[in-house]
Design a protein around this nucleic acid. Sequence first.
DNA 1: CAACATATGTCGGCGAACGACCTATAGGCA
DNA 2: TGCCTATAGGTCGTTCGCCGACATATGTTG
Lengths: 110, 110
Amino acid sequence: MSNRVVQEPTLLLLTALADAPRHGYAIMQEVQMISQGRVKMRTGTLYGALDRLLGQGLIEVHEEAVVDGRARRTYALTKGGRAVLAEEAERLAATAREAVRRLNLGGVTA
Amino acid sequence: MSNRVVQEPTLLLLTALADAPRHGYAIMQEVQMISQGRVKMRTGTLYGALDRLLGQGLIEVHEEAVVDGRARRTYALTKGGRAVLAEEAERLAATAREAVRRLNLGGVTA
DNA sequence: CAACATATGTCGGCGAACGACCTATAGGCA
DNA sequence: TGCCTATAGGTCGTTCGCCGACATATGTTG
């Protein structure tokens, strides 16, 4: 019953991976760009969300390299993640449309 | 920097009040309808959110009647609430558009 | 050398949402 | 009559995603 599928920061994360695989830092920058600088995703949110999404099978590790003894992972959307993102995007768009419709109904002639 | 303006359940609540003032129970039903039965708002969420939104000045008490010794309040959007809802709806629509755009970019030829 | 960007992560805490429960009346139905 | 459901409004403890701050390491530029 619960909606709690994905929240906005998470949705932006998925969106950031929609066109190409990216690594963590790049995702943060991409999220900022997508949201026109409004949402600055923190690392705490990022890596927490990545773990969660990996567990949910919405994203996967695309490539894993070790650079200077540090893991460098790039993540990619899975088919499931792609489907979820498409669904959520449609749902969001529908909600937004409904909000606008109602604002116009009750707004002017209230 | 933080996005956290309003979350989805809250946004649906505001949307439910966009065309006409409503009381709590009616809001719950309306939210269900708007979301096509996907989001079933609980009373815990509802009244918590109403208090919060009243405090933020996004909604106001429209009418207050006492029926059978019980308070019956109807809530309405304030101008501020209306503005916030309009903004958020636009933002959501933009995010959804970007998600779809990127899905089409990377989806087929990946 | 200091400062910033790149890059990856951990941890404590907050707050919205959730879920379960409570009260109360009216109506359907077995 | 007793039970369930819908209407209507409300409280409270818990969960969980997000936030903010911190830690670490390298490369670059002033």
